[in-house]
């Protein structure tokens, strides 16, 4: 009985929206820049995904918390200031505790601020909803972004370096597909993923 009811709860629907129905990358095609750039290795994808998830959750929560006080005229600026603050927090945290990953991600950590998903969730959801739903929404969208990144990175790392998380998985004679380590490889794999997810969720862009 409870399982059937689950489908009608708000948090279930919010999670479903973020993870599949309105997946930010596959359906919304947001945050593509970083998705192409950092998916050449799985560890980079994990770090970037968690960083973005943290920024979405933290900034959405803060926007939601003060949503009644934000003057409409300066709301965009407010989102930017809040997002920028959390991005710097993530950057300092990575530099302090994961310097190698921070070096590998380079400028892309700072560029989380330009990731449309973060701003999009603040404006579309956090500014209108109470904190607990905002939390689910941020988490679902962040994880929706993360798992697509990790899946793309899994394919790319195996083909480009013959490894997963730096463990050799391909046989010795395997010739690395260099193109997979570069941006074009990201385009191919990501496009195929978007195709698969859209087929599975029956999401077609019909001509009007």
């Amino acid at each position: 009985m409870k399982l059937i009811r689950l489908k009608y709860t708000k948090w279930f629907n919010i999670s479903k929206n973020g993870l599949s129905q309105n997946n930010p990358i596959a359906i919304g095609v947001l945050g593509i820049c970083s998705a192409l750039a950092v998916t050449n290795r799985v560890e980079n994808a994990i770090a970037m995904g968690l960083g973005v998830t943290f920024v979405i959750v933290a900034s959405s929560l803060m926007v939601s918390m003060i949503r009644r006080f934000i003057p409409p005229r300066v709301r965009m600026v407010t989102y930017m200031v809040i997002i920028a603050t959390f991005v710097i927090v993530v950057q300092l945290f990575l530099e302090a505790f994961f310097p190698i990953i921070a070096a590998a991600l380079g400028a892309y950590v700072g560029l989380i601020i330009t990731n449309c998903i973060v701003m999009g969730r603040a404006e579309a959801f956090a500014a209108k909803n109470p904190m607990r739903f905002t939390f689910y929404d941020g988490l679902a969208n962040g994880l929706g972004y993360t798992y697509v990144l990790i899946l793309v990175a899994l394919v790319r790392e195996v083909l480009a370096f013959g490894t997963i998380l730096n463990y050799q998985v391909m046989p010795d004679g395997f010739v690395n597909w260099t193109v997979m380590a570069m941006a074009p490889g990201g385009f191919f794999v990501l496009a195929i993923f978007i195709w698969i997810i859209r087929e599975l969720t029956n999401n077609y862009e019909l001509q009007q």
Binding site: V74, V77, T78, V81, I82, T85, V89, L92
Partner: peptide, 18 residues
């Protein structure tokens, strides 16, 4: 007042993390 408070809170957070 809102902008000032926002600036103050975010700066404090950053100073703390730094």
């Amino acid at each position: 007042i809102f902008v000032l408070v926002l600036g103050l809170v975010t700066s404090l957070l950053l100073v703390g993390v730094d």
